[in-house]
């Protein structure tokens, strides 16, 4: 298929960017979206132009690195997938495809489609962990009885790969689905409950500090999340935060 691509080009974080049009031809419907981008870049390199910078790593939907806003949706028009899992069969011959970076003040553009998502890392560092004695006397996690229901819910929350699609999709650039998933993942398990109050307070404080917007419950994040993280995690975080704030 032959396509017109409208791609955001930005030299670096300090330079103003703009949308630039490119044509690609003979694209197979069996290609992944990133393979199509590879074809474009090969074309650009051959003609002496600067290739389009974009994030990618595992190309298996696991690492959460790919981060494109395609035709107005994070990770493109398909559901439950990352950009690397998007296939060209989702498009038609002659289509114009708009490709932009994930946009949020807390995700500044580094170059073209590559954004800095270190704000997520800083939120994790603020409390997204459990403190374990690793002096050689570490208790086996399986020694603690955990209900199947709690374990399943924690596992569902832990499926979050921190790609940032929730932030990119949210009209307010809110990170609450990401933070909610991380808070819930630990709050549901006995190992995480020991530091639950400090965790939620510190992670929410860091989230606010990073400049993410407020959640207004549109539910767009849940729909676009490649891992199907539920809004229930935001509700749980809200409860955990209230509980922690009352405790002081």
């Amino acid at each position: 298929m032959n396509l017109t691509l409208k791609i955001w080009r930005q030299k670096d974080s300090k330079t103003k960017g703009q949308m630039v049009d490119y044509k690609v031809t003979d694209i197979s419907e069996h290609m992944s979206f990133l393979e199509m981008m590879d074809v474009l870049n090969e074309q650009l390199v051959n003609s002496g132009d600067e290739p389009v910078a974009f994030d990618h790593d595992c190309r298996e939907g696991i690492c959460g690195m790919c981060s494109m806003y395609i035709n107005g949706e994070a990770h493109g028009p398909d559901r439950g997938i990352t950009t690397c899992q998007l296939h060209m069969r989702m498009f038609n011959d002659g289509d114009t495809i708009t490709i932009e970076p994930f946009r949020a003040k807390a995700f500044p553009v580094i170059k073209d489609l590559v954004v800095d998502r270190m704000s997520f890392e800083r939120i994790q560092q603020a409390g997204g962990y459990i403190s374990v004695n690793t002096s050689g006397n570490t208790q086996d996690a399986n020694a603690l009885p955990i209900s199947k229901h709690a374990a399943d819910e924690a596992m569902d929350a832990a499926a979050c790969i921190g790609c940032g699609a929730c932030v990119a999709t949210c009209k307010n650039s809110s990170a609450m689905l990401f933070v909610g998933a991380k808070v819930a993942q630990y709050a549901l398990l006995p190992q995480g409950q020991v530091e639950a109050a400090d965790r939620v307070k510190n992670m929410v404080a860091q989230m606010d500090l990073e400049g993410f917007g407020n959640c207004t419950n549109t539910g767009a994040c849940e729909v676009e999340c490649p891992k199907g993280i539920s809004l229930e995690n935001i509700a749980r975080m809200n409860r955990e935060f209230l509980k922690a704030s009352i405790k002081g």
Partner: peptide
Amino acid sequence: NRSARVVKYAKNNGAAN
């Protein structure tokens, strides 16, 4: 909330989600 996204999307399909 508006200040949390300085540069707006050229194309945004809010109705999709």
